[in-house]
Structures are given as C-alpha cells and as structure tokens.
Design a protein around this nucleic acid. Structure first.
Lengths: 123, 123
DNA sequence: GGACGATACATGCAGATGCATCTAACGTCC
DNA sequence: GGACGTTAGATGCATCTGCATGTATCGTCC
C-alpha cells in the first residue's frame, strides 16, 4: 500500500520535473530559434558525432522518438536548410544526415538558450 | 564546460527515464483498458479527491496538461461513460466532473497495470 | 441596473507523434 | 540469376496537444 503510494509519488515527481522542463525548452527554443525540442536534439546529436554524418537509424537509437517521427523531424530540418540528406553509397537504403553551415550556426545560437533552461531547472 | 555536459547528461537521463515509462504506460493502458495516460491520471485524480466532485480548473492545476487538453480529456472520458459533467450551481461558468460507477470500475481494473509498469521501471 | 474587465470552460486550428504499411534495396539460398 | 525474407526509411492516418480565440458568467464600479 505504502509501496504503491511511493511508486506513484516517484512517478508524479518525475512527470512533473519532465513536464516543466520540456515545456520551457519547447517554448524558448521555438520562440527564440524556431526549433522544436526534437529538432534541437537531433541537431545536437549530429554535431556531437565526430563524423557528423549519421544514418537515420543511428539517430533513432539515440533519441526517444519513433522511426517515423524522426524521419519527419529530419525532413523538417532539411526543409529549413539545417541538414542535408544524402544517399549512403554502401547501402542505398540508408540515408546519411549531415548538418549544413546554417545548421551549425542555428545550433550554436540555440545552445545557450537550451543550457539556460536546463540550468534553471536542474540544480 | 563540464558543468554544461553534466546538465545535458542530467536532462538526457531524465528524458530517457520519462520516455520509457510514459511509452510503456501508454501502450499498456491503451491496449489493456482503452485509456490514454492522461485519461487514467484524470480518473485517478478524481477518485483520490474525497468529494469526487472536482472542477475542471482544479484538475488542470494538478495535472500537467493545458486547460484545452484537459477539457478534451474530460470530454473523451464523458463520451466513454467514465465521468459525468455537471453545472456548478454556485458558479455557472464552472463544471463539476464526477466519476461514474463504470469509471470507478475501469480505474480499478487499470490501476494494477499502471502500478506494475511503474514498479518495473522505478526501483 | 448597465458597462467592463476577469474567469471558466469549449472549440477552431495547426503541428508533432506513433502505428501500420509501403517501397526500395540488401543478403542468402537454391 | 531469381525468389524470398529482412532492413532502412517514407508516408497515410488517427490521435493528442497547445495556442489563440469564442462564449457565457461573474464581480465590481459607476
């Protein structure tokens, strides 16, 4: 009984922290840089990976998005000129995603906003 | 620099835990009981409040949903016969939401599923 | 009592998501 | 080389969400 209440409390606390941060991130990245959280985090993943040339499949594994959602996220980023999609030579089913210069710039601008929100919420 | 990495790690960890749990909750509540997480949690809030007769406004404050999303969540629950909406006598702008017998039953059935998922993920 | 700003909830709308499915390319087995 | 199961990614569709706004009611001030 108490164990159940403890579980529920733990979840409620996690949910609460998550919701507040996600909401703020979304609001500030959107209004300041025109990015959704998923878009920012996809850019972030791309730029943190040395080759900067990542298959969509690899991004799926490192993000908490379904394959379809990520496919569309990449499509939006491409439409905004922040990434480019390129055929993968060795496996023509695959798609390499690479950030553009503009993508690097926008990510660089958005990064302080992102970190500020995190700092505000996380000790 | 390291502080920034620590922030990002903390957020990534929170996001990861949240996503896994929310996803499992959604999948299992949906397939087993036809409820979204928001619907379950709204029912839960209603049933945990002694009077069981709560204004929509009060629910908004205890849930991480916008007012419009909650309005629709209540509408869905009403459509399924799990709650009833009633005019508030003292303030006719207000709406009281009360669980039906069916609502209590469904919540009672879903509760073990919900707690099992939480137990699986939270220590 | 009438005008006016504030509050409670509903709703139009646009956007993001997941599931199921589709297409194209891969790899293997014969 | 052709058939077949598998895999990478794109897309149709339904759903949930938030923002902005609409509608009705409240409370106050004159």
């Amino acid at each position: 009984m108490t164990a159940e209440a403890a579980l529920a409390d733990q979840w409620r606390s996690l949910l609460s922290r998550y919701s507040r941060i996600a909401h703020d991130l979304d609001r500030e990245l959107q209004s300041g840089h025109g990015l959704t959280v998923s878009e920012y985090e996809a850019l972030d993943q791309l730029l943190c990976r040395p080759p900067c040339k990542v298959r969509v499949q690899d991004l799926v594994e490192s993000m908490h998005l379904s394959q379809s959602a990520l496919s569309r996220t990449v499509a939006r980023l491409e439409k905004c000129g922040l990434v480019e999609r390129a055929m993968c030579d060795t496996d023509r089913r695959g798609v390499f995603v690479t950030p553009t210069e503009e993508g690097r710039r926008v990510h660089g601008e958005a990064r302080p906003t992102y970190l500020q929100v995190l700092a505000r919420h996380l000790s």
